[in-house]
């Protein structure tokens, strides 16, 4: 369901800040500013890795009343994203989903779907169709 015309937000979490940012650039190229978007990548020391605090911040910055779809690369990014979602207030946490989809293709397809006003479940399902 579309909530007050809000579009689903997209968050990109990669071990590499370069990949996260590059993926976000590709999403922007597709949908412009019509979809709330944030990315994060790298550990607390600036090396490769993921960081719960940064993920919480990215979700807040891409927050939409229609919910947020999170795209992750490898295992630790997913586990840390789950941890970050649990730290949100419960009313928000329920509206954030981690997509089981390839990072770049998933984020771009989800954003295209979100820009058309699709609901969170539809946005996630579209991206997850990419995963066999």
């Amino acid at each position: 369901m579309k909530v007050n015309g809000a579009h689903v937000g997209i968050v990109i979490v990669s071990h590499s800040p370069l990949i996260a940012r590059g993926t976000a650039d590709m999403v922007r190229q597709m949908v412009g500013d019509s979809v709330p978007l944030a990315w994060c990548g790298g550990n607390a020391d600036g090396g490769l890795g993921t960081n719960v605090g940064d993920i919480v911040e990215a979700i807040s910055s891409a927050w939409s009343e229609a919910g947020v779809a999170v795209f992750v690369d490898l295992g630790g990014a997913e586990t840390n994203s789950e941890m970050a979602i649990e730290m949100l207030e419960p009313a928000r946490a329920r509206r954030v989903l981690i997509c089981n989809a390839p990072l770049v293709e998933g984020a771009v397809m989800a954003a295209a779907e979100a820009s058309g006003g699709a609901a969170l479940a539809r946005v996630v399902a579209t991206a997850e169709e990419l995963s066999p």
Partner: peptide, 14 residues
Amino acid sequence: VMTVGGAAGPLYGT
């Protein structure tokens, strides 16, 4: 959880 990163952070943290 907030500092280790990787999967070990959430696991030891939990």
